[in-house]
Design a protein around this nucleic acid. Structure first.
Length: 274
DNA sequence: ACCCAGGAATCCA
DNA sequence: TGGATTCATGGG
């Protein structure tokens, strides 16, 4: 069991800010799945508890070595009211260190899709193509490997409500099997990493930025989706229409902390409009 | 019936 | 290079 005392870790904030899809309410908190592992996490009065069979993995997963007070202070002193408000609301947000391949396939599913539907697709896919596991008496399934996704074929995804993303799933699975090495890209600078991710069929700028931020922990990434675009117009008075240029605007403004700011404001904007 | 969602590929000028 | 169109699906 890991115990972590900090106001900069809140299970709800971390899980519901949009960076992860495989979690569900459980007892006092949440049951979280990552790769072929699971944990139980809850926060009570500024104290977060993590139970798992692999503490080293989840110690890294929840980014426990990073001091988020520095990041929070940066947001609070940014000079942008919306960023200050967002950081206050999502004080317990952290950027998880998730598996690269899982991020690739998860965010392919995410494009032009609603979050509840994304969760459903990923859950069904894991049940059908992953391995059955259990933790604390709960059944869960590992995230399927590229090989399983490739073997399932485009037909499986088309028949299981993945829509036009079905072809992207098998195309990317094929690339990975044919030697597209996600781990090897770790040595590249962020711009070059993104450039390489963009060569995958079905991976555009937004999905590449999500993989870069959540899978490689490149906080000099700034995914722009419809929510961020709306926020950019309404709260930053922005006029640019090209999402690539909107990304550049935020990168120029927030630099190495762009990814953290992005999660704060994405979570904030969505929580307002529910 | 319409609109929208953590967009990207494709076509077209 | 930049803009419009097309691509499935289901919840509101």
């Amino acid at each position: 069991m890991i115990e972590y005392e900090s106001k900069f870790f809140n299970a709800k904030d971390v899980l519901e800010c949009g960076q992860i899809f495989r979690f569900r309410p459980f007892e006092k908190g949440y049951f979280v799945c990552a790769e072929d592992k699971a944990c139980y996490v809850y926060t009570e009065e500024g104290r977060t508890v993590i139970e798992s069979d692999d503490e080293e993995y989840f110690n890294n997963f929840f980014d426990l070595l990073t001091d988020y007070s520095v990041i929070y202070d940066f947001a609070e002193k940014s000079g942008y009211p919306v960023v200050v408000k967002a950081a206050k609301l999502g004080k317990g947000v952290r950027i998880l260190r998730q598996n690269k391949e899982e991020m690739l396939f998860s965010f392919i599913v995410s494009q032009n899709n609603h979050i509840p539907r994304i969760k459903g697709c990923i859950e069904r896919m894991s049940r059908d193509l992953g391995e059955k596991k259990s933790f604390k008496g709960e059944t869960f399934y590992s995230f399927p490997k590229a090989e399983s996704i490739y073997k399932a074929g485009e037909k499986y995804f088309a028949e299981n409500a993945f829509g036009y993303r079905a072809g992207y799933m098998s195309a990317c699975a094929e690339s990975v099997l044919n030697g597209f090495d996600l781990e090897k890209l770790s040595s590249l600078p962020t711009k070059e990493l993104k450039k390489q991710l963009l060569t995958l069929h079905g991976v555009g700028p937004k999905v590449a930025d999500c993989i870069s931020l959540f899978g490689y922990h490149r906080t000099d990434s700034f995914p722009v989706d419809t929510w961020i675009e709306k926020l950019y117009r309404e709260d930053f008075g922005g006029t640019l229409k090209d999402r690539n240029k909107i990304t550049d605007f935020f990168l120029d403004t927030f630099g190495e902390n762009s990814g953290y700011v992005q999660q704060y404001i994405f979570y904030y904007k969505r929580s307002l409009e529910q």
